[in-house]
Computed example of a mutant assay.
Amino acid sequence: MLDFDTYQKLLALYADYAAVVDNNEWDKWPEFFTEHCAYKVQPRENYDRGLPLATLSFESKGMLKDRVYGMTETIFHDPYYQRHVVGIPRVHRADHERIEAQANYAVFRTKPDEMSTVFNVGRYIDTIRRTKDGLRFESRLCVFDSEMIANSLIYPI
Rank of each mutant, 00 (worst) to 15 (best):
A15C: 02
L56Q: 11
R67C: 08
H96Q: 14
H84I: 04
N24R: 13
H92A: 01
F58L: 15
V20P: 00
A12S: 12
R83S: 12
H77Y: 15
G87M: 05
Y39C: 07
K9I: 06
L13S: 04
E25T: 02
Y14V: 02
A18I: 01
E25M: 08
E45Q: 11
R67E: 03
H84F: 03
Y47A: 07
V107N: 06
V86F: 04
T55Y: 04
R93L: 12
G50C: 09
A106D: 03
K9M: 11
D66V: 13
A15I: 00
I99D: 06
P30F: 08
N23Q: 13
N104A: 14
T34I: 10
D22E: 02
E97L: 14
K65H: 11
A38D: 07
H96N: 15
Y47S: 06
P89D: 00
N24H: 14
F76T: 11
I75S: 14
Y105E: 06
P79V: 10
K9F: 09
L56A: 08
N24K: 15
E31A: 14
R49V: 05
R98F: 15
R109W: 09
T34F: 08
A103T: 00
A101M: 04
A19Y: 05
R83F: 09
Y39S: 08
V86E: 09
R44M: 12
E73Q: 15
Y7E: 05
